[in-house]
Design a protein around this nucleic acid. Structure first.
Length: 331
DNA sequence: AACAGAATCAACCGCAGAGCA
DNA sequence: TTGCTCTGCGGTTGATTCTGT
């Protein structure tokens, strides 16, 4: 029989998301919370399939996502977790709540695999043992000097245009908006944004949730400014600041708490995010229980990683690397 | 300056599993 | 138990950007 693909409908849009679409999606999720993706395209009028909406949200729009360069610590965690868990990117991402599984997967495929290979080739080819474990030890023990060991291509590791964007950086958002508005000449971007922000803010106030602004902030900050766009001034920083009220910027606390909760549990990042949302929106109790059930199920099905977790979350935990290696059967 | 190849990353695709009637 | 729907995950693709010549 087979299930028909979800995106075979005529008129379903594919390809990169536009800021307008993002705003629509974010606004909708602010009001209804994530989940029930099937109804999102119908209710929002977005010409996207539900899957695409979910993906866009989880990989790009949801609050608390950190983009840009991976720190040596994050890098080490990924290498280590990949060695322990394999290509279980979602599981790995649960230990890096600010990173998406897609990001981690991409980073692994584009950077770390390459590094690992180079490291492997830099070793004695006859050497016994897992190159990745040796790499990991080196990575953790030497951290920033790792690249000295590997004859790395600096252009790969330090791309000049790679920007690090963080939630609630109004400066970044302002820049991103500049780029967007320049690319949308047919539309009065400022008006649209103001309208959207007003809608968002009023909706947030109405719902009494603290999520809204950080969500929208993240959604907008995700548009990377192109170099030629950075000098423009279609919307000034001050102008944009007026759109974002300080009151709402303070709501970034939601991100933190959500991330913190992700840090101290072994649930997936997705589950944590969903839970955080439900707590703020206060409706859809059924989804909460479902999530919690899933959480419990996850906890019971995953191996006891508390030790690993403790180490992973400890910036200074490098001394324990060898212990973990001993614990893991793959070493 | 122009071109080609490499690198990056957002998005898509297909499958698997959970939940529900 | 079965069949269907929905969601999540991992692999892959392709457009865009960067770098080297």
């Amino acid at each position: 029989m087979g299930r028909p693909p979800c995106c075979d409908k005529v008129g379903i849009k594919k390809g990169p998301w536009t800021p307008e679409e993002d705003i629509i999606l974010v606004s909708y999720i602010q009001e209804h919370g994530p989940g029930n993706w099937r109804s999102v395209p119908t209710n929002t009028g977005l010409l996207r399939c539900s899957k695409s909406c979910r993906l866009r949200w989880t990989n790009y729009l949801r609050p608390g996502i950190k983009r840009g360069n991976f720190t040596p610590h994050e890098e080490g965690m990924i290498i280590h977790l990949q060695a322990l868990l394999g290509n279980k990117w979602a599981a790995i991402a649960s230990y890096l709540p600010q990173r998406t599984d897609n990001d981690i997967k991409n980073y692994w495929n584009t950077h770390l695999k390459k590094k690992l290979k180079k490291f492997q080739s830099s070793l004695d080819p006859t050497a016994q043992g897992s190159a990745s474990s040796q790499f990991m030890s080196k990575s953790f023990n030497e951290r920033n000097s790792l690249d000295d060991v590997i004859t790395t291509n600096s252009s790969v590791l330090n791309r000049p245009n790679q920007v690090s964007t963080y939630a609630s950086s109004t400066e970044n958002i302002s820049r991103l908006l500049e780029g967007w508005m320049r690319s949308s000449p047919k539309q009065n971007g400022t008006d649209l944004l103001k309208e959207s922000w007003e809608k968002n803010n009023s909706s947030m106030k109405k719902n009494g949730d603290s999520l809204g602004n950080s969500v929208a902030t993240d959604s907008l900050q995700s548009y990377r400014p192109r170099p030629e766009e950075e000098s423009g001034d279609l919307i000034s920083h001050e102008e944009f600041e007026s759109i974002l009220s300080l009151e709402n910027l303070n709501n970034v606390a939601w991100d933190k708490s959500s991330c913190d909760s992700a840090t101290v549990t072994t649930t997936t990042a997705t589950a944590t995010t969903t839970k955080g949302f439900k707590n703020t929106t206060g409706d859809e109790k059924d989804n909460i229980t479902t999530t919690e059930r899933k959480q419990k199920s996850d906890e019971s099905s995953t191996p006891p990683l508390s030790f690993l977790e403790k180490w992973l979350m400890d910036e200074n935990g490098t001394v324990q690397v060898e212990e973990i290696m001993e614990l893991s059967p793959i070493f």
